[in-house]
């Protein structure tokens, strides 16, 4: 009974056009305009997927038994350059553990471009980020690049605050030349977490 009541309450809240983005004529009205800014906080799970070693055989190796499920968090600032498109910058951090409990850390600083699809009281930003990342385990540190495509689903609680889920795919190249070229690899990860966004 409690579950049913909870679901009904949830559906009621979600269906409320608290700050509806549809005007009286049924047209979408974007809450954003050129110059609108958002500040977003993310936190969730960091999921190692697989490593790709172009020079080795087999080239695709699962991270299972090599890296644990980890955690991630990030802070992001964005500015809209139209009512649908924003440009931003994100600082993130992750941790996960190797079999001998060495901590693997990724700290990317990325530029980000996003396009917002409105769906009623919801928004679905689809985005792509790239930049530099500090990649560290034990006493090895690698400074390299990173690609982060992803998408979010936000429910706008009011004009200022939106809450939702974010999923990102992380491609982390580790490129070597010369003697170590065979060790070139591409780490593939995913993060799924909760997001809170402030619009101002």
């Amino acid at each position: 009974m409690k579950k049913i009541l909870f679901l009904l309450l949830l559906l009621t809240i979600l269906s409320l056009p608290v700050f509806a983005q549809i005007d009286s004529s049924g047209e979408y009205v974007s809450p954003y305009s050129k110059g609108s800014q958002t500040f977003t906080m993310n936190g969730g799970l960091f999921i190692p997927l697989f490593f790709y070693f172009p020079a080795l055989s087999p080239s695709v190796e699962s991270t299972k038994d090599h890296l644990s499920l980890g955690g991630t968090g990030s802070l992001e600032w964005s500015m809209f350059i139209s009512d649908r498109i924003s440009l931003g910058i994100e600082l993130a951090g992750t941790f996960s553990f190797t079999p001998n409990m060495n901590t693997h850390v990724l700290i990317p600083l990325t530029g980000k471009i996003a396009y917002v699809f409105p769906v009623g009281s919801f928004e679905i930003p689809v985005f792509f980020g790239t930049g530099l990342a500090v990649n560290k385990v034990a006493n090895q540190v690698y400074f390299g690049t990173i690609l982060k495509p992803g998408a979010s689903v936000y429910w706008n609680m009011n004009l200022r605050w939106g809450f939702g889920l974010t999923a990102q795919y992380w491609i982390v190249p580790e490129v070597y030349f010369g003697d170590k070229s065979d060790n070139t690899s591409f780490g593939n990860f995913m993060d799924i977490g909760f997001s809170a966004r402030y619009h101002f």
Binding site: F51, F53, Q140, Y142, F143, G144, T145, Y176, K180, S185
Partner: peptide
Amino acid sequence: SLFTACNVNGPGIFYTIYNE
């Protein structure tokens, strides 16, 4: 950034993790 990347120590982060 692909060409400015560097790791002065060790055989590689992911290579090391995979072989640990």
